[in-house]
Nucleic acid binder design. Structure first.
Lengths: 237, 237
DNA sequence: CAGTGGTCTAGACCACAGG
DNA sequence: CTGTGGTCTAGACCACTGG
């Protein structure tokens, strides 16, 4: 493992355990680079990672201060899947695969320039149950040229887990879009909506490390159970 | 200005102008560091900034590939205010300050440990009009120990602009939370809701560079006009 | 194999905060 | 003034890609 990442994990641990309490300063970069026996630049990479993840705030001329954002509710951002979300929050939940079949590339993805007209995709619909209610409906379109088949039993677990662990592919980045849309017939059919008129829709274009378009996902959430938390830094200049 | 930031801007410009077309590789780091006359680490800082902002994707052993996310719709993430959002999208809009007064620290912020019980805050309510309809209602609670007064005319422009430009303070980071809530009497009073039952609510705890809590904002959006776009990278490990 | 990006170093100088 | 973080360098070695 990389030195800077080891150091990142070590300091992160010390912040979470209270060894470095919120509101207080970390030792200086010079000091810590000596303590860990690394160059200052390497130590600084570890601090940069802590900064990006909301653990510390740096101030030129003063030092690095420990934040307490992570005490109560740690923001789940980036590309997090339902499975990971569920695990991080220890929610009892279940997944039912409703549809899992190959279809020709849908027009809206061809028009968007994400797929070729003659391609095939795997069309996947999954119900996400929490406390025995379907509160999320996930619709996935996955490029067949990248994945031939998806075993339904695996999909009841995690799609990303299967792709990254079983297939050894790396998901890299996504463009995500949050809106609130009117419920469709499909929503009514598959979700427990109790007379809601709208759902939160999260649309994602997902890409692999080699920049190939891999998957389009539409995640439809019941209003009363939707929550998205983010730690954001202000971009200077 | 920093070398790495100058280089970042230069490459960003070349990507946006099509000099480096989407899908193609940038020159190698070694090559570019020579071209710009800087060390490789400095050149790499510029590339890191491009990576974070979704302009390129790097692949070990291969190179840096230009992405085309920014062609159509560039994700607005981080800490972006209504004013900046509006400018980036060239929307005709208007702001009306409805309330601007000092009140004692509200209980929910004291309970959250963000304010002391004996503090005062500036309570600000602003209507955001687009096409002559109030589609956003912003409610701000701003710490009086940091800002004494907010001139109402300035608030019709941008709060952040006033704080960073006129007062010379630096907003650093925020914890943001997105939910969908039932409309309140206040929403009905101040917003043009056409019989909607819900609004999107974005709650933010905003902090300064010295980690002082500065502001709590509740931004209430009409469902049909809400949209949030984000570029997200998957966190490895 | 050569060429790419990823990590790390030891040191330098600068900008800023605070006594 | 000292001590802090911010930037930059010149070079080294490693890991990965693809011919």
């Amino acid at each position: 493992m990389n030195k800077f990442y080891e150091i990142y994990l070590d300091i992160k641990e010390k912040i979470e355990s209270g060894f470095y309490p919120a509101g207080q300063s970390l030792p200086s970069e010079h000091q810590m680079s000596q303590d860990y026996g690394v160059s200052r630049e390497t130590l600084r990479k570890a601090l940069l990672t802590l900064l990006e993840n909301g653990y510390i705030q740096k101030q030129q001329g003063k030092g690095s201060i420990v934040l307490d954002i992570h005490r109560y509710n740690f923001p789940v951002s980036g590309l997090t899947s339902f499975k990971e979300l569920q695990e991080s929050q220890a929610i009892h939940s279940e997944t039912i695969v409703v549809v899992n079949k190959k279809i020709p590339a849908p027009k809206f993805l061809v028009d968007a320039g994400l797929l070729d007209a003659d391609e095939m995709v795997i069309y996947l619909i999954r119900q996400r149950l929490v406390d025995d209610e379907v509160i999320i409906l996930d619709k996935d379109y996955i490029r067949c040229s990248i994945i031939e088949d998806l075993p339904t039993p695996k999909m009841e677990n995690s799609l990303y887990d299967y792709i990254e662990h079983d297939l050894g592919m790396q998901i890299a980045y996504a463009k995500k879009e949050f809106t609130v849309d009117r419920v469709t017939k499909e929503d009514k059919k598959y979700m427990d909506l109790n007379s809601d008129t709208h759902v939160v829709v999260v649309r994602s274009d997902v890409f692999l490390e080699d920049t190939r378009f891999f998957q389009y996902t539409e995640s439809r959430h019941r209003l009363d159970r939707f929550k998205f938390v983010e730690f954001a830094r202000r971009n200077k200049v």
